[in-house]
Design a binder for these strands. Structure first.
Length: 714
DNA sequence: TAGTTTTAAGTTTTT
DNA sequence: CTTAAAACTA
């Protein structure tokens, strides 16, 4: 007998691997080593997919000699992009030179360089949904708010599906004939502002690459390896973009989980992942089914719900961590009791196990549900953080400031102009604004030129107001110094810096505390410029009168608004005080609404979060709340949409590592009045024996199996 | 035109 | 019940 036959099977005969590869399991390693045409990794929840992608990036650089600049990795969220970059760099520093971006920021990067091929100037601003809606409001004059919102949704959807106003398939999105006209008018009007919306960040690059074969050929030579994370969330336009940026020699590796596809409403096509092997012939498939996160009973109920879906690539997760306690299903009388239930669970675990607050996450379907938890947690002094609904950049004062800043680089920006031209009141009424905009649109002038054209027709008061306004904008612009002179050069410099992905920003420093802002507000000095771009921001806010306006309109929340403005100025100080710096600043704000973690002071907090926002996260203990018919799933969900809600349940449940709680209320306040509620269908799809039921269940759930909820918190 | 009052509408989910 | 847009008055 030779030595090797005495060895257990688990010790294979192969050369020693470096530790970063040794840490992988067999399938993960196969995915990292894989070479060929293309690879589809079906990665179940908690199966270590980020580890695989980051390791693969490092492996390609280290072992395969792929230049980092030739690697493109695309994600859907900024958080994921950041995490991926950090983890890849940890394995090999050179990974920092690979391009790791979200789809949208990749599109923006592309358009800054090649947008001129579609008549776009390089200083464009990205309109968010709000801006889009106000522009559409101007296009659809006389329509109700709801109609405008619906049209805005449909236009965004059309762009997700890569449909233009003259596309016959547009009827699948909106069959009304006037929709085509509205969409076309909107596109025309948007073009006149010189700006783009979210959908354009994907759609326009595809069009440019298709219409400019020579440039496309050169561009395709750049990336030899393309990886896509969360591929199940890709929409049709993103799929088209993927096809346009690769050629026959490009290696494509996509990672995803069809069971976690939860963005259908946003145009995500599960078909993209289901049909990937057909779309890219020669694709190999690797499944990652070992789950390293959750205890077995948690995976089991997650699976039993999603098993009710048809048309999925069956996957069976294996719980590496083994078995544990059954998930708890709590029947509660109403939402106030639900809040108390959660609070007591958390406090109880704190007392009994010294479990950290940060171990806990409360999941809900809609952002509005966070309110009750916030109020009660404040009362009980339970520290918490709300993820996602931090609408810092949607606040009135912030949007006003951003509009002013936008006007410095985007002089034909209709939306920004209308927003701030008469704020604070300068005697410029709606009628005047409309006339100025119409002249500007009709004669392709910027607003200042349009006013001069109109001078005799505009009242003296309005004219004076407009002059004051333009003067403030000029003062703001004057604070920007251009490096080397022209805007073009500054932008080119930024683009070059981007080529190797070296941030043009300075390293973040400690932010000025809220206290400092408050003190300055009390002194009526209001805002303090720090350095870099903040000089421009502060000048503009002071000169335009916006700072004073918000100081005066801030009677309830103390000086919150001024603090917010100060916070904006602080954020700006990290960027250079140039036009390129300003563009960079605005772009980062539009594409990444999540504010940098400000709670470094106390990270031990309960997380309040929507189900959608939890993707990619994990917590030791998770409470999924409001598991009621009409809320989760929403009542109008049928067929594919109901299947998507099931996947959302799956995503939520698989966030839990050790313990999962589900709560469902018999009554709930909605729109001000109290409505009776019924348990979610999903609860009927789980075997009763897999749950520990507490509280007062409705008759549909047999009572004798239930317990009082004294002992639920073990 | 500015500021206040009245009325209606609305809750998915996100880049 | 809350928030935003229309309507109304000064």
């Amino acid at each position: 007998m030779n030595a090797s036959s005495l060895m257990p099977d688990s010790v294979p005969l192969r050369p020693m691997l470096p530790p970063y590869l040794e840490a992988l399991n067999e399938e993960q390693r196969a995915a990292v080593f894989h070479s060929g045409k293309s690879l589809l990794i079906l990665a179940g929840a908690g199966s270590g997919k980020t580890r695989v992608i980051t390791t693969k990036i490092a492996y390609l650089i280290r072992e395969q000699g792929v230049p980092p600049q030739a690697i493109l990795a695309v994600t859907f969220t900024n958080k994921a992009a950041r995490e991926m970059a950090d983890r890849a760099r940890l394995i090999d520093g050179r990974a920092g030179f690979a391009m790791l971006r979200t789809f949208h920021s990749f599109g923006a990067w592309f358009l800054r360089q090649h947008g001129s091929l579609a008549g776009l100037d390089s200083g464009f601003i990205i309109y968010d949904d709000d801006d889009t809606a106000s522009l559409l409001g101007a296009v659809m004059e006389g329509s109700s708010r709801g109609e405008v919102r619906e049209a805005a949704r449909h236009i965004a959807r059309a762009k997700d599906y890569f449909l233009s106003p003259d596309d016959p398939e547009l009827t699948l999105i909106d069959h009304r004939s006037e929709f085509r006209r509205i969409y076309r008018d909107y596109e025309e009007r948007l073009a006149k502002t010189g700006n783009v919306d979210f959908g354009d960040l994907i759609k326009k690059p595809v069009e440019i690459l298709r219409n400019n074969p020579a440039m496309a050929k050169r561009f395709r030579a750049r990336f030899r390896v393309i990886m896509v994370d969360e591929y199940q969330d890709a929409n049709v336009a993103q799929f088209e973009l993927l096809k346009e940026i690769r050629d026959e020699d490009t290696y494509i590796c996509v990672v995803g989980d069809d069971d976690q596809s939860i963005y259908r409403f946003r145009g995500a096509e599960v078909r993209n992942i289901l049909e990937f092997p057909e779309r890219f012939p020669g694709t190999d498939i690797i499944r990652l089914e070992r789950n390293y996160r959750s205890l077995a009973p948690i995976l089991s109920i997650a699976a039993s719900v999603v098993d009710h879906n048809e048309g999925r690539l069956e996957k069976t997760l294996i719980a590496v961590r083994g078995t544990g306690k059954k998930p708890v299903l709590a029947f509660l009388p109403n939402q106030d009791e639900e809040v108390m239930f959660c609070a007591e669970l958390i406090e109880g675990s704190w007392d009994k196990h010294k479990a950290a607050y940060a171990d806990w996450a409360i999941l809900y379907r809609t952002n509005a549900q966070s309110l009750g938890f916030e109020t009660e947690f404040l009362r009980r002094h339970i520290p918490y953080r709300v993820v996602g609904s931090l609408k810092f950049y949607e606040r009135e004062e912030i949007k006003d400031s951003l509009a002013l800043l936008a006007l410095l680089v985007s002089p034909r920006d209709e939306v920004a102009f209308c927003r701030v031209v008469n704020k604070p009141a300068r005697g410029i009424g709606a009628a005047t604004v409309k006339r100025v905009v119409n002249v500007a649109l009709a004669e392709a002038l910027d607003f200042r030129a349009a006013v001069e054209r109109l001078t005799p027709k505009v009242s003296a008061k309005a004219h004076l107001g407009l002059e004051t306004f333009f003067h403030a904008i000029e003062l703001g612009r004057a604070t920007l110094f251009t490096t080397g002179g022209t805007r073009g050069e500054a932008l080119a410099e930024e683009a070059r810096a981007d080529e190797v992905d070296q941030p043009t920003k300075k390293a973040p420093r400690k932010r000025r505390g809220i206290q400092g802002s408050l003190k300055s507000a009390r002194n009526k000095e209001a805002l303090i410029a720090d350095e870099g771009l903040s000089t421009c921001v502060v000048t503009l806010l002071m000169e335009s009168g916006i700072a004073e306006y918000h100081l005066n309109h801030d009677e309830i929340a103390g000086n919150q608004r001024i603090s917010n403005l100060q916070e904006l100025a602080n954020a700006a100080s990290l960027y250079p005080g140039t036009e390129a710096g300003l563009l960079d600043f605005l772009e980062h704000i539009e594409l990444d609404r999540s504010l940098a973690d400000t709670d470094v002071d106390d990270p031990n907090k309960v997380t309040l979060i929507t189900l959608h926002n939890t993707k990619g996260l994990e917590f030791r203990r998770v409470i999924m709340t409001g598991v009621e018919q009409g809320i989760f799933p929403r009542e109008d969900k049928r067929n594919e949409e109901l299947e998507e809600e099931r996947r959302l349940f799956y995503v939520g449940a698989t966030r839990a590592m050790d313990q999962l709680y589900l709560s469902t209320c018999a009554m709930r306040r909605m729109y001000g009045n109290t409505m009776p509620m019924f348990p979610s269908v999903f609860l009927h799809e789980i075997d009763r024996k897999d749950l520990r039921i507490v509280g007062e269940p409705p008759y549909a759930f047999s009572k004798k199996e239930c317990e009082d909820y004294d002992e639920y918190n073990d």
